[in-house]
């Protein structure tokens, strides 16, 4: 049952985008997201569409996986569109009871919806082609300058990768404890809200105990291997830029310039 949930939606494939340095992908996604909110005209969106379509094609990830990411934010998109539609002041097109639809409202609603869709599609290109570990590696290395102002970059990155690593373990553990309590007659499906919350206690207590035990064990194991934080620590696979990464940066910068130039049209 719980086994079917997947978090971190990496889609393994052999493509240029997969092989890119995670820092390039992080930077590219950032630029893309910023550009989406600067673009105000049709030509700008055409440029963004071409850029995104190109990336999706290069990534070799089936398009339906990208669309999957849109489903959970459907409601959010609908609400945003409705708010923009009804609450933007301007030239009234249609008036209905206390609600008014203005020309600017229609424009804003369409613009916001397109932006949100593009935002999700664009960022899912990154999450689908980069493993969570690569992402934290990339983040750690890109944020390293912040060390100078006493931000514990390494510790943050390590916490992120441990947290990600533990998600599937805890899901499995939940599944196991749930079954064990069901074998003792526990009921997680019936009853009213209050009763259901009460019925979760036999699941949550052992789950927390086990999470703390695992955390303890992990800390002990790390210390036994002389882990002492980021200082002087080297990597088995250090991130280094190769030719394709520089090309990718060039493409991103060209895109940035184009979207700035055409953004207003």
């Amino acid at each position: 049952m719980l086994r079917d949930i997947t978090i971190g939606q990496y889609y393994p494939a052999d493509s240029v985008i997969h092989k890119l340095d995670p820092r390039v992908k992080l930077f590219g996604t950032l630029i893309y997201v910023i550009s989406l909110f600067c673009i105000k005209g049709v030509v700008g969106f055409v440029v963004a569409t071409f850029f995104m379509a190109g990336m999706i094609a290069l990534s070799k990830v089936p398009f339906k996986f990208m669309v999957k990411g849109l489903k959970p934010i459907m409601i959010l998109m609908l609400i945003t569109a409705l708010f923009n539609l009804f609450l933007t002041p301007g030239d009234v097109l249609v008036s209905f009871w206390v609600l008014e639809i203005t020309k600017e409202g229609v424009q804003n609603a369409v613009l916001m919806t397109i932006r949100l869709i593009y935002l999700i599609l664009g960022t899912s290109v990154m999450t689908l082609t980069t493993t969570p570990n690569q992402l934290t590696d990339g983040l750690e290395k890109s944020l390293r300058p912040l060390n100078k102002i006493k931000v514990p970059v390494h510790a943050i990155a390590m916490m992120m990768s441990i947290a990600l690593r533990f998600i599937p373990i805890l899901i499995e553990e939940t599944d196991k404890i749930m079954k064990a309590q069901m074998a003792r007659g526990a009921d997680f499906e019936n009853g009213n809200m209050l009763k259901r919350i009460k019925n979760m206690i036999p699941l949550l207590v052992p789950l927390f105990v086990s999470a703390f035990r695992r955390a303890d064990d992990l800390a002990m194991a790390m210390e036994a291997r002389c882990y002492s934080g980021g200082a002087g620590r080297t990597k088995m696979k250090p991130l280094t830029y190769v030719k394709r990464d520089y090309i990718a940066y060039a493409v991103i910068i060209v895109y940035l310039l184009l979207s700035l130039l055409c953004g207003r049209i």
């Binding site: 196991k176 064990a180 007659g185 206690i201 036999p202 052992p206």
Partner: peptide, 26 residues
């Protein structure tokens, strides 16, 4: 009755006695 692997991981009550009562109460 099914006793899972490492069944001690499913204990949750405040006392041993209450924990063993969980099944019969259900």
């Amino acid at each position: 009755g099914l006793v899972f692997q490492y069944p001690e991981h499913q204990l949750f009550e405040t006392t041993i006695f209450d924990d063993v009562c969980f099944g019969p109460m259900n």
